[in-house]
Amino acid sequence: MIDPTMVTTSTALDGHRVTRNLGVVRGITVRSRSILGNLAGGLQTIFGGQISIYVELCEKTREEAFRFMLQNAAERGANAIINVRYDANEVMNGVTEVLAYGTAVVVEKG
């Protein structure tokens, strides 16, 4: 697995030079909110402020997509990922797709 410190949203990794570009890699996951989660989230909206149940769901979903992206890059032989981005789309009501993607590369110090 790729060390998360070797992942950046930048087009370069400080202190390293790209020796090989292995192409776009991605990690995708699709999640839905449970009925109980929707109920709890709905109750939290009554009082305003941060809706912690949805924050937790979003964070777990992004983390899962990120891990899948790392795995995809490692399978290609990469030791770093540059230009990382996230995207999310609602597939259907209450079902969201989250995509983490970037460019898998091999880097060397220097």
Rank of each mutant, 00 (worst) to 15 (best):
residue 25 V to D: 03
residue 55 V to P: 00
residue 26 R to S: 14
residue 100 A to K: 01
residue 98 V to S: 02
residue 75 E to W: 03
residue 3 D to Y: 13
residue 52 S to T: 15
residue 77 G to I: 05
residue 93 N to F: 11
residue 74 A to N: 10
residue 18 V to A: 10
residue 48 G to P: 12
residue 44 Q to H: 07
residue 107 V to R: 02
residue 84 V to R: 04
residue 39 L to S: 12
residue 105 V to A: 10
residue 43 L to N: 09
residue 5 T to Q: 14
residue 73 A to I: 01
residue 50 Q to I: 12
residue 102 G to H: 03
residue 42 G to V: 02
residue 22 L to Y: 02
residue 20 R to A: 12
residue 49 G to Y: 06
residue 64 E to W: 05
residue 19 T to A: 08
residue 61 T to P: 14
residue 38 N to R: 14
residue 85 R to D: 06
residue 38 N to M: 11
residue 48 G to Y: 04
residue 15 G to E: 02
residue 49 G to L: 08
residue 78 A to N: 07
residue 57 L to W: 15
residue 35 I to M: 08
residue 102 G to L: 03
residue 38 N to D: 09
residue 36 L to P: 03
residue 70 L to P: 05
residue 12 A to T: 13
residue 3 D to C: 12
residue 7 V to C: 14
residue 98 V to I: 12
residue 45 T to S: 14
residue 53 I to Y: 06
residue 47 F to V: 12
residue 90 E to V: 06
residue 51 I to L: 09
residue 40 A to T: 11
residue 3 D to N: 15
residue 64 E to F: 05
residue 76 R to H: 10
residue 104 A to L: 02
residue 61 T to D: 04
residue 69 M to V: 02
residue 110 G to A: 12
residue 67 R to N: 11
residue 18 V to K: 08
residue 91 V to F: 04
residue 106 V to H: 03
residue 62 R to T: 05
residue 109 K to F: 09
residue 31 R to H: 07
residue 96 T to L: 01
residue 10 S to Y: 07
residue 35 I to K: 11
residue 99 L to Q: 01
residue 83 N to I: 00
residue 23 G to T: 04
residue 107 V to N: 10
residue 89 N to A: 13
residue 6 M to K: 15
residue 12 A to G: 06
residue 47 F to R: 14
residue 45 T to W: 08
residue 4 P to Y: 13
residue 106 V to L: 07
residue 14 D to R: 13
residue 93 N to W: 06
residue 7 V to Q: 04
residue 80 A to I: 00
residue 95 V to E: 00
residue 38 N to Y: 03
residue 54 Y to V: 01
residue 58 C to P: 00
residue 1 M to N: 13
residue 88 A to C: 05
residue 11 T to P: 05
residue 108 E to K: 15
residue 61 T to H: 11
residue 85 R to W: 05
residue 86 Y to W: 11
residue 50 Q to P: 07
residue 43 L to M: 14
residue 89 N to L: 01
